[in-house]
Design a protein around this nucleic acid. Structure first.
Lengths: 197, 197
DNA sequence: CGGATACCATACGGCTACGTATGGTGGGTC
DNA sequence: GACCCACCATACGTAGCCGTATGGTATCCG
């Protein structure tokens, strides 16, 4: 349920195929990047595909590259406004996750296929960039570097895990908007709070 | 890298096939539960498989059931000794996760295939059981029910996410044992600490 | 030691996906 | 209006996997 099924009768571009591949990944995993099924969804045939791409691998690479770019540029670039105070930024970052129950399902799908080298290298870059951003937020809150890194790891783990929950068993997450907001506030307080001695 | 490839020349049991299927899931996802490749790994043929099982679905069901049983019995039963104090239990629970870098990779693989009904029902049960356990821990620490549930959600999200990180990009996690221990202590303190006003 | 039963190998047909080859078609350009 | 080239459909051969059918071997049991 991402890019829908495309209009019937117009010419396709390389990007149409890439988007369809990402939609397939989001729905049924990397293994679902198969030319003929996607062609059927796009209401075209392999003939179109093999004009735009050399083979299946090329399509997968293009999809991964597109996701990497979108993910890093959008999320990180949009958040890291660095004019606001770090707690606000962290809250915004977390809200972005908690807010959308229907998240981008590509990330989870890729995590499951971390075995493939192509996938794992993309994942490594995206993960590192995101964690570094969160580390910098905690540092700007006054946490010493080691402490900041541990908190960032915890925060990012929670981010990933929340995504998995939303995608796999959304029933356990708060459905009511008020509860979601309370949860968000609680998470921020817990992650930013100095523990009692 | 779980069950290795089995000895060459003895008779196989149903459980041998089930274990091999779980190993396949751990390595390459649910889609890797394919009879002929697994048969090759077990150094036998489909003839063996179709004597023990009706079809591929039956094998997948058996593998999922086995994982569910192992997961709930082992982890929950072993932790929920309920004689110790809840903070110790939580620490033990978290340590079990942080401790093994090489985790059981079946969980992450299943999360990725939450689309399939068979997978999702197993996941729902396991997830609910685990979260309920953690909720009870926080309640026994004195947190009111709503608060306890939110903290449990955060803790379980972190659990899942940590597993994903360990499985996909272990490089970002602390490698040094001392650092791992410091991380564990920090996580416990953060998750159990009352936030400052 | 002869038969029955449990377990396995092999061969087959059907399906689906990959990749290639080759022949359309339609919208720009002179 | 002839042409060309970007773009697509169709047909083909190959390969991997499913599920069935059927025959083979090993082990137990009387």
């Amino acid at each position: 349920m991402v890019g829908s099924d495309a209009s019937p009768q117009r010419r396709l571009t390389k990007d149409d195929w890439t988007d369809a591949a990402l939609a397939a990944i989001a729905e049924r995993g990397v293994a679902a990047v198969a030319i003929e099924p996607i062609a059927a969804r796009l209401r075209t045939t392999k003939g179109s595909f093999y004009w735009h791409f050399a083979n299946r691998e090329a399509l997968l690479d293009a999809a991964l590259a597109r996701w990497e770019e979108r993910t890093t540029t959008d999320v990180i670039g949009e958040i890291a406004d660095l004019s606001d105070d770090p707690v606000t930024l962290l809250r915004r970052l977390i809200a972005r996750v908690i807010g959308m129950t229907e998240r981008d399902a590509v990330g989870p799908a890729l995590l499951a296929t971390a075995g493939e080298p192509r996938v794992s290298s993309v994942l490594a870059r995206v993960t590192a960039a995101r964690i570094d951003l969160i580390v910098s937020l905690f540092q700007r809150m006054g946490f010493p570097p080691d402490d900041a890194r541990r908190r960032a790891l915890l925060a990012y783990s929670a981010y990933l895990g929340h995504g998995e929950l939303a995608h796999s068993t959304p029933g356990v997450l708060p459905a009511d908007p008020d509860e979601r907001h309370a949860y968000l506030e609680d998470v921020v307080l817990i992650l930013t709070g100095r523990p009692h001695r």
